[in-house]
């Protein structure tokens, strides 16, 4: 569904992302992992059209979308969420979701009906009339997801939707994401919460210093020496091995 090939981006002398490639199959949940500053979010901004890549291409459903503006990409069915969630203050939860729904439903009554339905699907039925600014972090993360779903997008790029949540909230969102996937959506997610990655993602890519260093199932990745070193530092894999044998 999504094919990213040799994506590169430099900011001044800093190579934020170089030669990154990844594939997301339709109906899949793919993780994008990596330590802080590895270039994960930069990858997302390029895929979703917020920044133009220096090199490389992004194909969505077989169409080349490299360098298209975000609103065009969203209209084609691919949407990103933000790490720092910011609901539209001054609007209710339902109106917030409706902003997403307006993309394909121009009439207010229709958009609000879609918003209500999406909100209920994500367990936000009781909050629909509340001002969005009154939501807790967990509520805001759900709202971010609801707004994205309301656009009718089929591929969702989630940027750390689990960050800042307590474990019980994480398992709720994990359940919601699985349910949405079963309804026919596809996910590419940046995630640090390993509990979520291990239980959701079928495959994952690991980015470090802007380069893809590994690709495989989450279980393979946690045993990959290169991945361990990316997180814990040079030589860490060897020392861990010694620890196991001792």
């Amino acid at each position: 569904m999504l094919e990213v090939r040799n994506l590169s981006k430099s900011f001044g002398g800093l190579k934020a992302v170089s030669d990154a490639s990844l594939d997301v199959p339709e109906g899949g949940i793919v993780g994008l992992l990596g330590p802080n500053g590895a270039g994960k979010t930069t990858c997302f901004t390029m895929i979703a059209g917020f920044t133009k890549p220096d090199h490389g291409s992004v194909r969505f459903n077989g169409q080349d979308v490299t360098g298209l503006p975000p609103h065009r990409i969203c209209a084609m069915g691919m949407i990103r969420t933000f790490q720092i969630v910011q609901p539209f203050a001054g609007l209710t939860v339902q109106e917030n979701i409706a902003v997403g729904a307006y993309l394909h439903h121009h009439d207010r009554a229709e958009a609000m009906a879609v918003a209500r339905q999406v909100g209920k699907r994500l367990g936000m039925g009781a909050m629909l009339d509340r001002p969005a600014s009154s939501l807790t972090i967990a509520g805001r993360k759900r709202l971010e997801l609801a707004r994205a779903l309301a656009t009718g997008a089929k591929l969702l790029l989630l940027d750390e939707v689990m960050a800042g949540l307590i474990p019980s909230e994480v398992s709720e969102i994990v359940g919601i994401i699985r349910q949405i996937r079963d309804e026919g959506h596809t996910f590419l997610m940046i995630e640090h919460v390993m509990q979520a990655v291990m239980s959701l993602a079928e495959t994952a890519y690991v980015l470090n210093h802007g380069k893809m260093i590994a690709h495989g199932t989450p279980r393979e990745l946690v045993q990959d020496p290169g991945v361990v070193e990316a997180y814990l530092g040079h030589g860490a894999a060897a020392r861990l091995q010694e620890g196991h044998h001792a």
């Binding site: 979703a48 917020f50 503006p69 975000p70 609103h71 969203c74 209209a75 949407i79 990103r80 969420t81 933000f82 910011q86 609901p87 539209f88 203050a89 001054g90 609007l91 902003v99 997403g100 993309l103 707004r147 994205a148 656009t151």
Partner: peptide
């Protein structure tokens, strides 16, 4: 209103 509150989020929503 979406543009006023958060332009990037608005762009992402199409």
């Amino acid at each position: 209103i979406a543009v006023r509150e958060n332009e990037d989020a608005a762009r992402a929503l199409g």
